[in-house]
Amino acid sequence: CGGATGWDGRLGSLFDSSPTAALQDRSPEALYAAGIQALQEQRYAQAGQIFDALEREHPFSTWATNAKLMSAYADYMRNRYTEAIGTLDRFIQLHPAHRDIAYAHYLRALSLYEQINDAQRDQRSTELAMAALQDVVNRFPETAYARDARLKMDLARDHLAGREMNIGRFYQRQRLLNAAIGRYRRVVEQYQTTNHVPEALHRLTEIYLSLGLREEAARTASVLGYNFPGSPWYQDSYALLTPGAAPSDAARPGLLRRAWGNIF
């Protein structure tokens, strides 16, 4: 990055090619102001270079510490999450008592959160993001960052529940009902606060019924009805257990779908 330095380490500003070279005034305050201005104009790449130059030329000024934070923010906005996390780790190690340490932890958790894959794919990044967000909530409970972190943790937990449901539905489509029960039970037991629980309970009712365990199906449906009375899923479960009751309209498969289902 910025400043073509000669072999022997002296900063050769003579043939400097980076944007920071154009700046006449190299004082830390000027550089920091230029960096903030570049950020506001969404020129994140250039902002990153200015903050790195500031940190290298004036490593001891108080501006350098803020510059490290701002360059991490610039990297974050350019979706370069691994670099942002690297800079933030160094910031947290060097300045654990800095007044913006809460923001550093929060930005690091956000960088991990942005790398979450959708529910069909590997969820290790989700687990990493959950741990980082939990860390922010534990360290700085009252800050605005903690509130946003709690919201994001719910969404991340929803992702993990979504993965379990996808695997459960896969096994159910293959009619491997024992495997499907295991996955739906994990959603009901470990992800109670997500919005997948009604569907999981309904799926359990469907499977217990098709396995001939009527009382188990009735017990599961009653739990679903008690906790989520208005949910269309309860309507479907109720329809399964009491002959004649109409399932929720969204549930009735179309004629073509039913015909296809019988053939295949």
């Binding site: 979450i116 959708d118 992702h159 159910q172 569907e199 469907e206 019924l209």
Partner: peptide, 24 residues
């Protein structure tokens, strides 16, 4: 042991709860 006649053929609901997240 549950007899076969107690195992009705159940049509599974096709609707799915959507999960938010990065759509590709």
């Amino acid at each position: 042991q549950v007899e076969d006649r107690e195992m009705p053929r159940v049509a599974f609901v096709t609707r799915e709860t959507p999960t938010p997240g990065t759509e590709r």
